[in-house]
Design a protein around this nucleic acid. Structure first.
Length: 336
RNA sequence: CGGAAGUUAAUUGUGC
């Protein structure tokens, strides 16, 4: 059974769920770990329905799920917004005398938040028997997903008072909260916390800092932080470019694109959305045509409705209605 | 303590 579970886990970590399921079905006996390995494999690869189906089968065979299995299926429910099944599972957990430990509790918090029930998320958070940094991150993240930056920041400062050490995920969250609020003062405080935290510099946290400063309107600081990043990737460039685009610095957007390309990084779909949006704000019809063309010939970007929206917008404003309609008709997807 | 587990950075446009 142990070997079987290991094989199931190995196949699913390699991304071959079919082989994993075959191995699972061939096992003479299943213990709870093998069920867990298979269910978590489905969840990890986004096959939430299969995960829930297998969970139903587990219940049908009168196997007692454990905390790991609960966490996996709750995550599946959260991902497809299946609040009904999630509530049923929550209920089952309560009936089965499973304690709301940090793992099951955090998953419930995250699930309720994703399904839009923040009251219940914070209720579960308050009831949990233990809370670790992931639990705090889950509730903070929940408020952020719903645009409530101030509650997220309040929770962060409560967490500090509880002497619980934040981690990089916490920082990613609260920096986003500052960006939402335009709270540059709190942002600087958190920047300071990050520097004192004593962890290795991290590109993700660095990009979140760039984004935070940009969203607070402080492009100078954003660029300074950007220059100090250990390495610059497409996302960190994206944060910077989006900042320049939103604040109307059209030529800086072009400049960034050039520098980025010189670094050997090719712009992705999101970068192009920002660039085209910048053309649209600046009313640069020619630039927008130029960039759209280079995007198409690069063949490395999947065109999305956003790209077309930007083009149609900039052309429409410039009075090039005929060309705008041409773009509208040439959309490879359904126009809304 | 030979096997499974929770939170994770950049995202367009119209009108009030």
């Amino acid at each position: 059974v142990v070997v079987g579970s290991t094989i199931v886990d190995m196949y699913s970590k390699c991304g071959d769920l079919k082989l994993a399921r075959e191995a699972f079905d061939k096992m003479p006996d299943h213990d709870i770990v093998s069920w867990g390995a298979m269910i978590s494999g489905y969840v990890e690869h986004g096959d939430y329905h299969s995960a829930l189906e297998l969970f139903a089968k587990l219940l049908h065979e009168n196997v007692r799920p454990n905390k790991v299995v609960f966490a996996c299926v709750l995550k599946a429910c959260a991902s497809i917004g299946s609040i009904g099944q999630a509530r049923w599972i929550h209920n089952y957990i309560m009936r089965s005398d499973t304690e709301l430990d940090k793992m099951v509790g955090s998953t419930l918090v995250d699930m309720y938040a994703r399904c839009g029930f923040l009251n219940e998320a914070s209720k579960v958070f308050a009831l949990m028997s233990e809370r670790d940094v992931v639990s705090w991150n889950a509730i903070i993240g929940g408020y952020i997903q719903h645009g409530n930056g101030s509650n997220a920041l309040m929770l962060y400062f409560n967490m500090q008072r509880g002497h619980l050490k934040p981690d990089r995920v916490t920082f990613l969250g609260v920096l986003k909260a500052c960006g939402i609020l335009g709270a540059s003062w709190q942002g600087k405080v958190i920047h300071d916390h990050i520097l004192r935290h004593g962890s290795d510099p991290d590109v993700s946290v660095g990009s979140a800092l760039v984004d935070m400063y940009a969203k607070c309107g402080n492009l100078q600081e954003a660029h300074t932080v950007f220059n100090k990043l250990p390495d610059q990737n497409v996302v960190s460039w994206g944060a910077l470019i989006s900042g320049y685009a939103q604040l109307g610095y059209h030529n800086m957007v072009g400049q960034c694109l050039e520098n980025m390309t010189q670094q050997g990084l090719s712009p992705n779909a999101i970068i192009y959305i920002n660039i085209l949006a910048s053309c649209s704000h600046a009313g640069h019809v020619k630039d927008s045509r130029k960039y759209f063309k280079s995007m198409v010939i690069s063949h490395s970007v999947t065109l999305s409705p956003e790209h077309f929206n930007c083009m149609i917008d900039v052309l429409g404003r410039a009075g090039c209605l005929y060309e705008a309609v041409k773009f509208l008709r040439s959309m490879p997807m359904q126009a809304d």
